[in-house]
Design a protein around this nucleic acid. Sequence first.
DNA 1: CACTTGACCTGTCCGC
DNA 2: TGCGGACAGGTCAAGT
Length: 292
Amino acid sequence: MPELPEVETVRRGLERLIVGRSIKTVMVYDSPKSFPNTQADVEQFVYGATIVAVRRRAKVLLIELSTNYTFVTHLKMTGQLVYVGNERFGAGHPTDSLIGSLPDRSTRVAMAFDDGTTLFFNDQRKFGWMKLYPAPEVMNIDFMQKVGPEPLDDSFTAKVFISRIRHRNNTTIKAAILDQTVLAGVGNIYADESLWGAKIHPSTRVKNVSDEQLSTLLVELKYVLNLAIEKGGSTDKNYVNAEGKRGSYIDFARVFRREGKECPRHPGTVIIKTRVAGRGTHTCPICQPAPL
DNA sequence: CACTTGACCTGTCCGC
DNA sequence: TGCGGACAGGTCAAGT
C-alpha cells in the first residue's frame, strides 16, 4: 500500500544509499511480469552505469542512470525496494530490519553494485513492476501524461484543487481524491485520514461538498501527507523503507485500521468500518455523519 | 464521456 | 486440522 509518503520515504533512502554507485549485474527472477526488458538491453544500457539521481512522481520512482536510461518502478501494494549493504564498508543490513536474508521468494529483481552491495526489488503479489526506459521516453508513459499535480507543491492551491475536483462532481469525495488524475499520490490510508480531519463523510458526492469544505480538505491532506513523511510512512503489513525498516505513521492514525476504537475527538464513540468506492473505509459516525 | 466494477496476485485470517 | 472463501488495495481494462 505504498502511497506518496511511503514512496517519498523510499526515495530519500535510495538517494542517500545508491546515488554514485555503479551497477555490475542485474538478476531478474520474474520476467516479463515484474520486469519486461530483455537481458540484452540490460547488459547494453545498465551494466557499468552509475546511479545519478532518484526521483519521484506521484507513486512512481525513477532511478536515473549515467547512460541516460531510467528504471521506472511502481510498488503498487506489496512492492519493496531494499538496499543491502556490505559489512566491509560499514553499511551492513540493519539489525532492526523487517527483512530476512535476500533474495527470498518475493524477490523479482536484484541489482548488484560493483562494491558488493545490492538493491532488491521484492513484491509478494506481483502487482508492482520495474521497467527500463530511455530517459526521454519516461514522460511519454501513459500514466505520466495523465497523472495530476503533486499535492505538496506550493503551486497546488485550494483554487487549483477545487477547479480540478469539480470535474468529478457526480462521484463520491473519496473516489475523487483517490483518482490519480485529479491529484497525485493519495491512497486509501491518507484518503480516510484527511476526510476525518476535514469532517467530511467519504461517500458524500463532490457536488454536495462546499468550496470551503474542499479548502479544509486540502489543508488536511497536506497535513497528513507531511506528517506521514516525517514518520517514515505507514507500515501495515508489507511496507518497509530502503533499509528494510518500518514506518510509524500508523501509530498516529486517527481512523485508519482503528475500527472499534475511540474517535480522538469523541471519547465513547467508536470508529466504524464500511465500504466506499470499493475500499475499506474508516469513519467516526459523529464527526462524519453519513449523507442521506 | 462519466462513472463503476472486475481483474491482476498471494498471503492471511475466519468460520465450518 | 484442513479447506474454502473473503479480504487486503493501486491501477487499468472493460462494462454500464
